[in-house]
Amino acid sequence: MYQSILLAVDGSNHSIRAAREAIKVAAFNKESKLTVVYVADHNNAKTEVLHSNSTEELDLARRKRLQPIEEALATNGVDYVVKILHGTPGPAIVEFANDGDFDMLIIGSRGLNALQEMVLGSVSHKVIKRVDCPVLVVK
């Protein structure tokens, strides 16, 4: 059974849906441990720093983004930890997933079409291609 589960989130509705599926997967195994990983995107660093008065304020803003997910996990009794990474979302998640010993990665997908994917780039797509463990994409 899935013992060590990695849930990649960005605070969006897609990632909240992914969190709901993660709760179901975690329910299979009472011993399972969930790691929630969030990437503070390097591309947003300038804007985020500029718009916050202090590092504490910025940290709070980021944790608030994860609050609905944490609440869902806590109310369902999931054993979880939160990890905030700094980098480019796709590569950062891949590196973290492959460095750790995870049985499964769960990630939300925005469900972009071909054009949007070319312009915006799909994080889940990149992650699926390069991550070693099984991946559950939630749309």
Binding site: A40, H42, A45, K46, E48, V49, L50, T55, L58, H86
Partner: peptide, 10 residues
């Protein structure tokens, strides 16, 4: 300002 941005990124 730049130092704070680099602090955050790294």
């Amino acid at each position: 300002l730049t130092a704070t941005i680099v602090d955050d990124m790294t």
